[in-house]
Design a protein around this nucleic acid. Structure first.
Lengths: 336, 336
DNA sequence: TTGTACGCGTTATCAA
DNA sequence: TTGATAACGCGTACAA
């Protein structure tokens, strides 16, 4: 069976006895059409089951009404959750979502950006701000609205919807210091090209410095955001001559990995060592003990990003929206 | 600043001193072009930074090289994981992914399907098989290749890449029966328009019947796939006069919710009650005790679905691919 | 192997 | 408020 021949705008025009221009106006700017003719056209449209050809529309209008999101990976729940509301908001406004992933790799991300632009994306959601000048230039040349999310920088020349990773991590570290911790270790995500990860480490270092603890006394070790690899990193950390009283983790997945490994090794949490996470994923709330962490408004970020992209403001002067985080205290962090 | 004027195929043609037809051939069927001219064209393309206009290409070729996935929600990790590999596979083949979500609602899904078709999707990934005849007819009329995933039905007239939910659940129930359980309860996801959920319940019922246990002795209660709501459902289940020795859950999220609530109520797992999950998410492996569950090949499903859609087979005779599941035994299920 | 020329289905400009 | 018509940029017969 051949692909059924779909009705075109011309078929509708003939049936409604108007011009194609009128049909087009009916669909796009209905208030510029007399009600009587509008009714005729709408009738013809429904009778024929007409729906405008996407390619033709894109070609003529130079807009696709689709927006792209390039995230490190959907397998990380924080991005999946944010993406979900991003898509919801787009859908509410009749727009469509294109998705691809960068695997925390700048070169791949750059490729995806170019590909999405070539696909006619009307705007882009990107994560964080560390990428090459080349690609920023490219985006400016193409004049594609962009929103950078999950990070925040008030002085950025781009649209941002995010939160202050450093400040949040600093607050968490201060809490630990107040509980008497002095010997810190940080299990971070890979920091190259990941400003969220590096800011979280810096926040902890800053808290230590402010409390007159040498920031260099805190070993920083990197591992992927995976339960097993975080567990291995934890063993490495604990095999050091001076054992930490607290291990701060780059996110909740790592924290849970550390907790699991600690359990296997008979290390009591928080008796022998305290653990903190980041993100406030469900997983942090169901383990025993619950992970003390930072709540991040992932869903809000998705929504605000979409709204910004859909508004015309995104093309005008850049806007920075800072969202708030807060501490979630559970039992994995205790007084030393 | 206006949107920069992008180079067209004509600009490339002039620069390379060939016709636009040759440029087009160079890009789409390079083997039909002499190497020497090909080099000239490619040089011109890179010098100008040319990239074909998406709308024009779609209009002329009647293809968008874009595929749509409509899933219940990305917030459920199983779909996020499957979607991730689906997208990876598309990207490997130079195709792009459109995403939207149905919230387990048939009417919304139908709307999304129509929208994606209108957007020129070359193929669609859908979850499960329970939907209206109307929409199946629509898909056939439009002659859009479709793959139904996460379910399996060898007799389907559509492409399927999935697994036997009923058989997997049956196996799990049999294991429990072998361990001496007789008093079952089932905490299911909402079964309306969700064949995966209803098949899982049926599998358990079938196992009971086969063991001469009255399937009606197993209360079935529905709850959303959420930790807190599963916990509430569990309380309801435990307030019944005859308490179950085992609660089988529709998925791991529910199982974890039940476990958490049990802990709060001082109910020992598996001492007082056994729990089983479904999906083998990470979350099932990090709680204490670990959740006995069924491993589902989510990533494989994503990949196979994409491959099928990208191959021309998807348009030809429907193909059914059954993937295998297996039991993951942990400590939440024990002898009674 | 290459070029000419038309068609794809809309939107948008301009006149009426 | 409506209609005629020229773009929009590419693919692809068909011809050379």
């Amino acid at each position: 069976m051949d692909k059924a021949v779909l009705p075109t705008i011309e078929d509708v025009a003939k049936r409604a006895q108007v011009s194609t221009a009128t049909v087009s106006r009916c669909l796009n700017t209905p208030n510029r059409v007399a009600e009587s003719t509008r009714d005729k056209v709408i009738a013809a449209v429904t009778e024929l089951g007409y729906s405008p050809n996407f390619g033709a529309k894109a070609l003529a209008s130079k807009r696709t009404n689709t927006y792209g999101a390039i995230i490190p990976t959907m397998a990380n729940a924080i991005f999946a959750k944010g993406l979900q509301t991003f898509q919801e908001t787009l859908t509410e406004h009749g727009a469509t979502l294109l998705v691809s992933s960068s695997y925390y790799n700048n070169a791949i991300e750059e490729e995806q950006i170019r590909s999405m632009v070539a696909r006619g994306a009307d705007g882009l959601l990107l994560i964080g701000q560390s990428r090459s000048d080349t690609i920023y230039q490219f985006l400016e040349q193409q004049n594609i609205p962009v929103v950078l999310a999950w990070s925040f920088d008030a002085s950025s020349k781009y649209n941002m919807v995010g939160f202050d990773n450093r400040a949040a991590s600093l607050k968490l570290a201060q809490k630990a210091i107040a509980l008497g911790h002095r010997q810190f270790a940080f299990l971070s995500g890979e920091r190259e090209n990941n400003d969220r990860a590096s800011e979280r480490v810096k926040g902890a270092q800053q808290a230590l410095a402010a409390a007159d603890i040498d920031p260099n006394s805190m070993p920083v070790i990197e591992a992927p955001y995976s339960i097993t690899e975080a567990g291995e990193a934890f063993e490495q950390l604990m095999s050091s001559p001076v054992k930490p009283s607290i291990v701060m983790c780059g996110n909740d997945v790592q924290a849970v990995g550390v907790l699991k490994k600690a359990r296997e090794r008979g290390i009591d949490v928080p008796g022998d060592v305290s653990i903190t996470g980041f993100d406030n994923l469900e997983i942090a709330s169901v383990v025993e003990p619950g992970i003390t962490t930072v709540h991040v408004p992932h869903r809000q970020m998705g929504r605000k990003s979409a709204e910004l992209l859909l508004s015309d403001d995104a093309k005008a002067k850049p806007s920075q929206t800072e969202l708030q985080t807060y501490l979630v205290e559970r039992d994995s962090l205790a007084a030393v």
